[in-house]
């Protein structure tokens, strides 16, 4: 009996310690985002804003574009929010459509050969900095630099490996006899896809979409390379803010962080169960 108490105690002590490690940074960001500028840096630091304020949020969420002035800037994120939302959504939609069709074709017909999904995976393994240099030159020649289309095309390609592998796990769960049955009963191949495969993998499609969306929403390096002023996603904006402003506008920056993070965290928890499949590369026992 005593031993069991001890085990429980140690277990909770360790887990609570990691809980603190996990939560403090997130809490600190939220905390700072509600503080007036006078409270951003103090000793001892304030764990609660003495006069909570929404002015940081108000500032970054007012319409208009970011203004850089000597030593100070006023940051506006409505445009970056829209840019991030648009590029992440468009690239995720196309990547999911193409990637799941490809995964289906490979799973059912072995199209492209045994190693196709593995070779696609190398796209993901390549550090983005490697493609950044030639892409700059390439995109300048094609007039794709600093455009939505340019960024979205690259995001589609870098998302494809995850879409293919994640959807493979879901598609392999659909018994092929169901498809044979539908075909014998008179369904065309396209009808089989819409009436049988699609309804049975819809949760996988949603999860994959959200996952890829998060991936592209968070991407910094390629966005930094391929876009600049016309298109400017949230991570780039945050980076610009950090490097331009040595004085560090902690409050508005924390507000941007919170705005960029919270919706994604909410989505992430929604697809928590499916997230594993995406990372498992078909290596999980059922």
């Amino acid at each position: 009996m005593k031993r069991r108490w001890l085990v429980a105690f140690v277990r909770h002590a360790i887990l609570l310690a990691w809980t603190a490690v996990t939560l403090i940074p997130v809490y600190w960001m939220l905390n700072t985002s509600f503080k007036h500028s006078g409270e951003w840096v103090t000793w001892p630091p304030h764990w609660f804003p003495e006069q909570p304020t929404l002015e940081n949020y108000a500032q970054v969420l007012t319409p208009g574009s970011t203004i850089f002035e000597l030593g100070r800037q006023t940051l506006k994120v409505l445009k970056p929010l829209w840019d991030s939302l648009f590029t992440a959504t468009a690239s995720a939609l196309v990547a999911v459509a193409l990637g799941s069709a490809l995964a289906y074709s490979w799973a059912r017909f072995g199209t492209g050969g045994k190693n196709y999904p593995y070779s696609v995976l190398t796209i993901r393994m390549l550090p983005p900095i490697v493609i950044a240099v030639p892409f700059l030159v390439y995109y300048v020649s094609l007039h794709l630099l600093d455009t939505y289309a340019g960024l979205i095309l690259v995001y589609i390609a870098t998302s494809l490996p995850y879409v293919i592998w994640m959807m493979l796990a879901f598609i392999e769960d659909v018994p092929s006899e169901l498809e044979s049955a539908a075909r014998v009963m008179g369904a065309s191949r396209f009808r089989v896809l819409s009436s049988v495969v699609l309804p049975l993998t819809v949760s996988g499609l949603v999860a994959t979409f959200l996952f890829v969306f998060i991936l592209n929403w968070s991407e910094l390096l390629l966005a930094l390379t391929l876009t600049n002023t016309q298109v400017s996603t949230i991570p780039i904006t945050l980076n610009k803010f950090q490097s331009v402003n040595e004085g560090r506008d902690y409050g508005p920056q924390a507000a941007i962080g919170a705005i960029a993070t919270l919706p994604v965290v909410a989505l992430g928890f929604l697809i928590q169960k499916h997230l594993v499949k995406g990372f498992s590369f078909g290596l999980l026992r059922k």
């Binding site: 939560l23 998060i214 968070s218 991570p235 945050l238 993070t261 992430g268 928890f269």
Partner: peptide, 12 residues
């Protein structure tokens, strides 16, 4: 709770 960090934008 332990899954929280991986969902946050790395730049953030």
């Amino acid at each position: 709770l332990f899954l929280l960090p991986m969902m946050i934008v790395p730049a953030v």
